[in-house]
Design a protein around this nucleic acid. Sequence first.
DNA 1: CCCTGATTCGC
DNA 2: GCGAATCAGG
Length: 199
Amino acid sequence: MSWTDERVELLKKMWSEGQSASQIAKELGGVTRNAVIGKVHRLGLSNRTGPGPAAAAAPAQPAPAAPSAPPRPAAAAAPAKPAPAEEPEAETEEPAEPAPPPVSAARRAIIPAGQPLPPQPSANEISPEALAKVNEVEKSAKRISLMELTERTCKWPIGDPATPDFWFCGLPVQQGKPYCEAHVGVAFQPMSSRRDRRR
DNA sequence: CCCTGATTCGC
DNA sequence: GCGAATCAGG
């Protein structure tokens, strides 16, 4: 694949939108994120942040003092340019309502054995598909312990902490989220059908 | 470990 | 110009 005008254009667009190089590469196809980054640099738009407030002097390459060219053009006037209207970005439907997780791992850990567990949303008012998915996942879960939790392991608790049959999902998390895909599905609800159910 | 961008350098 | 390899963080 080569950098056609269209591809470059898309690159520019996505880059200015704050998309990561890997995302852009994925979108473009046929290139790696390295290629994207390389191109970004060659295009001279490495700095996503507009002309910063004259922040720090470039350490590596002190700008070749341009006698007549003030290094801050943008701020002053840009009448021709239509304001880059903030697009809501409806690509990924965000929950907007991070339905409280079943109780954080830490919290769980300090609940004395024998205590009635806080109600978990995991078995109620959740889309059947998500539930089915979870059930399936929990069968193949890695069953890791609290200490084995890492940033990349699903922290969804499974079982009763008061019994030996307690573990954490442990599957790879969805980036940015604390849970694997399946559990994200039940933890973060689309804010839809979720009417208060007076017990 | 997963990801991010930045840089280098042979092509 | 290109981008894999590498570097340097988070």
